[in-house]
Amino acid sequence: MATATELRRSLWVLVAAATLTVMAGAILGPIVPQIQRELGVSGAAAGLIITTHGGVIVLASPLVGSLVDRIGPRRPFVGGLLVYGLGGGAGLVVDSYYPLLASRVVLGLGTAGVYTSITVLIYELYEGQAMERALGYRSSANSAGAAVWPLIGGAAGALAWNAPFGVYLLALPLGLLAAATIPDTRSSSDADDAAADGSGRSDETSGGIAELLAVFRDRPALPLVYVLYFGANALLYVIVVFYPQFLAGIGVTASLDISLYLAANGAAGGVSALAYDRLLRYGGRSTLVGAAFVLWTAGFGIATVVGTAVGAALPVILFGLGLGLVFPSTFAWVEAFAPADRQGQFSSYVASFGYTGQFLSPVLFGALVPFAGVEGVFAAAAAVAGVAAVGLGAHRFRGG
């Protein structure tokens, strides 16, 4: 059993690692044009440097989840940090496109290991309100990373086009710190025995689609949690992808100015996530998620009519406040609904659904731009959030 001191120390290591999962793509956003010029590739090819790791996370996360269920989360967490640092930091010395793209695949594998292992470590190290608080801190760290890392990436890119890749190396000392501080949550001998003979957890996680569907049938709320996380990430990338275009239409074109709006979104999410466990005292997770839907509906609705640079700050702040309520609720619901001996597997689907939502968002909403403009995208996003708010409210009303 971990001591209170070990738990506090572990929490800060987990929080620090949580910012890295956001940094994986965010830190390179400001230097995409520089990558394009230096490597002599198209804008779409340069964009793949940012998005490739997300596709790897979608595919690799279920495998990582099964590994976590078999041997526990500590070793995949430490190993994931080391792989993350090596894969991301390789950009410092790679000066051609395809090797750089390959390094992003390695980065994705490391990120998948870190992302899912953080979730299960929180489940296994903390209980009750302490777990809710840790999940809130984790989401707050994600939001803070979304606010800060692009600014750091832009500043480092001013020194050299590949300088931002050096920031990934922070994962290496953090991995060593994790190895020294994160306690084992399971008996190492049990984990080694399970890994050696393929018994125990691995049997539970290898049942295929039929067993997965059986779990969803017995726990019908669980797939809805994944849909919630998919939708939240899809709406987040409506902000990330389309808000800069909207800002250009009202005269905000400087990259630093645009980054401040996105930073405000992340900062707002960080504030609400920090208060998450205290807000639960005034209403359950469904209440907080319902409040987030209302905030999102209002934020996107305002974005369809606002026409000033000052007024344009309000929609991103409202969206960020909602995001800080939805993300920790998602992870807490997975812990509550998933089978206790398969939490690695089922928490890994959160990452897969989230990154799929990010990837598909420009496709799903971008189709509206030729017909309705960016304002039409925001109107559609407001409608999605509004329907979700009404649906959740109706479900709670019927349930008493």
Rank of each mutant, 00 (worst) to 15 (best):
I317Y: 05
D277Y: 05
A394V: 14
V167N: 09
P30L: 04
D69Q: 03
L20G: 03
I122F: 06
G110A: 09
M131R: 15
V305P: 00
L67S: 08
I71K: 10
D341H: 14
F77Y: 04
S199N: 10
V390Q: 15
L86Y: 05
A273S: 10
T253W: 13
Q345L: 05
I31T: 06
V167S: 10
D193T: 13
S361P: 02
V68P: 08
A26L: 07
E335A: 15
R70Y: 10
V294K: 09
L323A: 12
G386M: 15
L100H: 07
A273W: 04
S255F: 15
G207L: 01
G324Y: 01
G284M: 15
G25E: 04
G85N: 01
V384N: 13
G113C: 09
D69H: 02
A291P: 14
L222D: 11
V32L: 04
Y168R: 04
R104D: 01
S10Q: 02
L63R: 14
V225D: 14
S42D: 10
Y115R: 13
A17W: 00
V167C: 08
S361V: 10
F371M: 10
G108H: 05
V93M: 06
A380M: 14
A382N: 07
G65K: 07
Y98M: 11
G207S: 02
G299R: 05
G301D: 02
R396D: 12
S61G: 11
Y123K: 15
D190N: 14
R217I: 14
R342D: 09
A381L: 10
S206L: 09
L63W: 15
G322V: 02
Y243V: 11
L135K: 03
G72V: 03
T52Y: 06
A130G: 06
G311R: 08
S66C: 05
T185L: 13
G108P: 01
R138F: 01
R342Y: 08
L48R: 09
S206W: 08
T253I: 13
G108M: 04
G113F: 09
H395L: 02
A248P: 12
F216V: 13
